[in-house]
Design a protein around this nucleic acid. Structure first.
Ligand code: MN
Ligand code: MN
Ligand code: ZN
Ligand code: ZN
Lengths: 145, 145
DNA sequence: CTTATAATTGAAAAACACTTTCAATAATAT
DNA sequence: ATATTATTGAAAGTGTTTTTCAATTATAAG
C-alpha cells in the first residue's frame, strides 16, 4: 500500500465518520487529488477522474470538493489565473509556494510573521485574525529547462 | 477641490494620455472607486454609479476596470468570499489589511520578508519571483460595535 | 440474505458572471 | 463645421457553478 493509498483510505474513513458514504465516485476523486502535486480546478479533476470512471458527473466533483473542504482535507487555492483550485490541505500552519511554470505546489513553514503583524496591528488599530501568504516562483525542475 | 476630486482629475488625465477619451461614464466610475475605502465588485460599482448616471451599462464598468488595471491605477483584490473586487492601487510596495466586518481596506508597508523568502528559496530550490501577503482582521470602528 | 432507509448520483435546467458583437452615439482633432 | 475614431449600452453568447429531480446505490436493520 502506497502512502497515497493509505491517505486515501484515511480520507474515506473521515468522510464515513461524518455520516457520508463510501462511493466509487468519491474514491476516484480523492485518489486524483492525492496523487497530484498541484492545485486542480474542478473541471480538471473531473477530466482525469472520468478516464477511470466513465459516467462520472462534474456535479459530483463539485459536491465532493465541498465536503472535503468542510472537513479541512482540501484547501481552495487562489492564483492570478484561476481562483477555484483545490489542493490537499497542509498539516498545521503552512503556506504555499507555487511554480508559475508547471504549477507544482509545495508547503513551507517557519514563517514568523508575528512581529510584523503586531506592528501593523498597533499602527492601524485593527485586531488581526488571519493572514494570507503565498509565494510564487520557478521550481528547480523548471529552471533547468 | 477635494483630494478625491484631484485624484479623479489625475486619473482621467492619465487615461487621456493613453489615448482614451474622457466620458461621463468613466468620470462617474472613477469617482465611485476613489471615494470608497473598500474593494468593490464590478456589480457594486455599477449599482452605485448608475444612481448618478442613469443608463450606465455594467459592461462599461468591466471595460473601465480593465483599462484602469492596465494603467496600474486599480488593483484586483481576492477575498474568501469574492475574487473579483477592485481597489485603488497603492503607491509602491504595500500590502492589504482588510476588515472582515465592514470590508474597509488599508495598505501597510514595512514588511521585510526577504530573509524568509531567501530561506524558503534555499530549502526548496525555487527561484521566488512574487509574493502575495494580505492581513485580515477587525478594524477599530468595528471593534467598538 | 432480504428489506427498509436515506444518501448519492448524473442529466437537465437554471442561475450566474463575464465577454463579444454591433449599430448608434459622442469625444476629439482638423 | 466636419471627419475620424473611440465609446457606449443592448443583446447575444460563453463558460462556470448551482439547483432540481427521479433513479440508483450504500448502509443499517431485521
Ligand atoms: Mn503564517
Ligand atoms: Mn511585501
Ligand atoms: Zn515548475
Ligand atoms: Zn470594520
Amino acid at each position: 500500500m502506497t502512502a497515497e493509498n493509505k491517505k486515501a483510505a484515511e480520507w474515506i474513513k473521515l468522510l464515513q465518520n461524518s455520516g457520508y458514504r463510501q462511493t466509487e465516485a468519491r474514491n476516484t476523486i480523492v485518489e486524483v487529488i492525492l496523487e497530484t502535486n498541484r492545485a486542480l480546478e474542478p473541471l480538471e479533476i473531473f477530466e482525469i477522474a472520468r478516464k477511470r470512471q466513465a459516467g462520472l458527473g462534474l456535479v459530483t466533483v463539485y459536491r465532493t470538493l465541498e465536503r472535503l473542504e468542510a472537513l479541512g482535507l482540501v484547501q481552495r487555492v487562489h492564483q492570478p489565473g484561476a481562483c477555484n483550485m483545490y489542493l490537499q490541505a497542509p498539516q498545521g500552519h503552512q503556506h504555499l509556494l507555487i511554480c508559475t511554470s508547471c504549477g507544482k505546489a509545495e508547503f513551507f513553514n517557519g514563517d514568523d510573521l508575528t512581529p510584523l503583524m503586531e506592528t501593523v496591528a498597533a499602527r492601524s488599530g485593527y485586531q488581526i485574525t488571519e493572514h494570507w501568504f503565498q509565494l510564487f516562483g520557478c521550481c528547480a525542475d523548471c529552471q533547468r529547462k
